[in-house]
Nucleic acid binder design. Structure first.
Lengths: 247, 247
DNA sequence: CGCTAACTTGAACGCCATCAATGCTTGTGG
DNA sequence: CCACAAGCATTGATGGCGTTCAAGTTAGCG
């Protein structure tokens, strides 16, 4: 419906293309899809908007569509008792809803206002079966998401609140190195309790860890959603925590 | 070299095929590749053997090959200080070395004697670029690995040793539901410290958690590598831990 | 059959969870 | 534009649980 195709519009998958030498080291993210691929996907895509906090889909509900974020940040999460566990943060260029079939394995909601392409599963499946080039792009993206999930588990394997928080900030910074340069602030789109649910702590512990990093003059923050790393060396030695091994 | 092609030999990717109705619920794993695809991959594959504990590749080394396990169990891990963090356990039918390019993102070693197909990256890339059908299989497998990594993170988000251990056993059981039926023993191919490195605890804590589950008559074990679940209900309520919410 | 590495067990410490109270911010309606 | 209310973030005190370090035991391998 709301699908105009001016220029190279259409779904976009951003990832570090691993076959281009130099990219992996520098963490350069680029658009994987070619213009014709984007146009192809655009034909079956609908632009959808979600308000901050709005549910995108529920865990266990029928999975009939795949999403591709245009702008905003979404949260993939699962119920964990009366609280919840955050699985991943989804940024522009990310693909989701693909990882589960039949029923969605996690729930997803918008952390900020979100604009996304919504693509019916049947159509996506048809394209995947015919276009090897699109497939490869999806494979690359999935590898990236897999690495991201592994990093998340790595983060959770640390048992100091400060380490976890520092690693979290590091991850967020990396996710935003799309267009920003170093020395800039890290933007934290989600609230404290969501951060807590991601790094496996209580909001209280997250708060204390923040204050601890601030009092050590390692980071600074005036706004709840913006953090700046002051002492990069100290920060790294905490983020790498027990990771302070030799080469 | 050691590549005989009798019948439908060649690399095999096992996964829950999500497009076949009923599979997802029952967790039925099946061979994704067709005979011709297996033959195609077999042409570029070499059968390789590793002894128990032998290194398959190092973290950061040049990634020039993809592996597909035929038999045995491998461990993907990363250094974490002077200890290590286990990222994943790789079972027959799993694909690895694919997720990282240029350099391997994790190290991998054999937990038991391992036999695997080793496929040069260039050849695999060529196949991926041409065969949309193979691509789709890889995509399905990657989605499964992604879910697995997410489950791992979910496990690590719990903060009771017993919960983590129970979830770990649950995962292991699931990975082995390839050919075995319920009520059978769970096989634990790796040693305690590797379990500890996977669930983010110390070996001491793992030991205590085991004894705790045993003294509660929830599991039994005579051998360090075999566990049987006696009280399935109690087990589930611990494995789902705080996950004891309604529908 | 003996050695070595891995597992178990114990005691003390430290860190985060918990619960509760206070302070801040965001959004809403007057 | 201000006042109020509701949710979110912070902060404090206490207790439980896993880490740590170390000693003792078992298991696995030559």
């Amino acid at each position: 419906m709301a699908t105009e195709t001016k220029g190279a519009a259409g779904p976009a998958i951003y990832a570090v293309h691993p076959w281009v030498p130099g990219n992996a080291e520098k963490g350069i993210r680029q658009q994987l899809l070619g213009d014709d691929e984007r146009a192809l996907l655009a034909k079956v895509a609908q632009i959808t908007r979600f308000n901050k906090g709005e549910q995108i889909y529920d865990q266990g509900s029928n999975a009939d569509a795949v999403f591709n974020i245009i702008s905003g940040v979404a949260i993939a999460y699962r119920a964990l008792g009366k609280s919840e566990h955050v699985i991943a943060f989804l940024y522009p260029g990310d693909l989701f809803g693909l990882t589960e079939e039949g029923h969605y394995a996690n729930a997803t909601r918008a952390a900020t206002p979100v604009v996304a392409y919504k693509m019916p599963l049947r159509a996506v499946r048809r394209i995947l079966n015919n276009r090897a080039d699109v497939d490869v792009d999806v494979i690359i993206k999935l590898c990236e998401e897999l690495r991201e999930a592994q990093r998340h588990a790595f983060l959770l394997a640390h048992n100091s609140a400060m380490s976890r928080l520092a690693m979290f900030l590091d991850l967020q910074e990396r996710l935003q190195t799309l267009s920003e340069d170093t020395e800039s602030e890290i933007y934290i789109p989600m609230d404290r309790s969501t951060v807590a649910a991601y790094i496996g702590l209580t909001p209280a512990a997250v708060s204390r860890a923040f204050r601890s990093l601030i009092s050590k003059k390692i980071i600074s923050s005036h706004d709840l959603h913006h953090v700046k790393i002051i002492d990069r060396d100290a920060f790294n030695s905490i983020a790498d925590a027990d990771n302070t091994a030799g080469p």
